Simulated scan of single mutants.
Amino acid sequence: MLIVNSYAVGFARPDRWSRGRPAEAVHPWHAVEAHRPPAELDGEVELAVCGAIVQVWGSQKWERVGVGRTACPECARISAVNRSLSSAR
Rank of each mutant, 00 (worst) to 15 (best):
1 M>R: 14
1 M>Q: 08
2 L>G: 07
3 I>E: 03
3 I>Q: 02
3 I>K: 04
4 V>M: 06
4 V>A: 07
6 S>N: 09
6 S>L: 08
7 Y>A: 02
9 V>I: 09
10 G>K: 00
12 A>K: 03
15 D>K: 09
17 W>G: 05
18 S>I: 09
18 S>C: 15
19 R>Y: 12
19 R>E: 13
20 G>E: 09
20 G>M: 01
20 G>W: 06
23 A>Y: 07
25 A>P: 06
27 H>E: 04
31 A>L: 02
33 E>I: 05
35 H>P: 06
35 H>K: 10
35 H>N: 10
35 H>W: 08
36 R>P: 09
40 E>D: 15
42 D>A: 08
43 G>Y: 10
43 G>E: 10
43 G>A: 12
44 E>P: 11
45 V>M: 10
46 E>M: 11
47 L>G: 06
49 V>W: 01
49 V>C: 10
50 C>P: 05
55 Q>G: 05
57 W>S: 10
58 G>M: 01
59 S>C: 11
60 Q>C: 13
60 Q>F: 15
63 E>S: 12
63 E>G: 04
64 R>G: 07
64 R>M: 14
64 R>H: 13
66 G>N: 02
66 G>V: 02
66 G>F: 02
67 V>G: 14
69 R>N: 09
71 A>G: 00
71 A>N: 03
72 C>W: 10
72 C>D: 02
73 P>K: 04
73 P>C: 11
75 C>A: 14
75 C>P: 01
79 S>Q: 04
79 S>L: 02
80 A>T: 08
80 A>E: 15
81 V>K: 06
85 L>D: 13
89 R>Q: 09
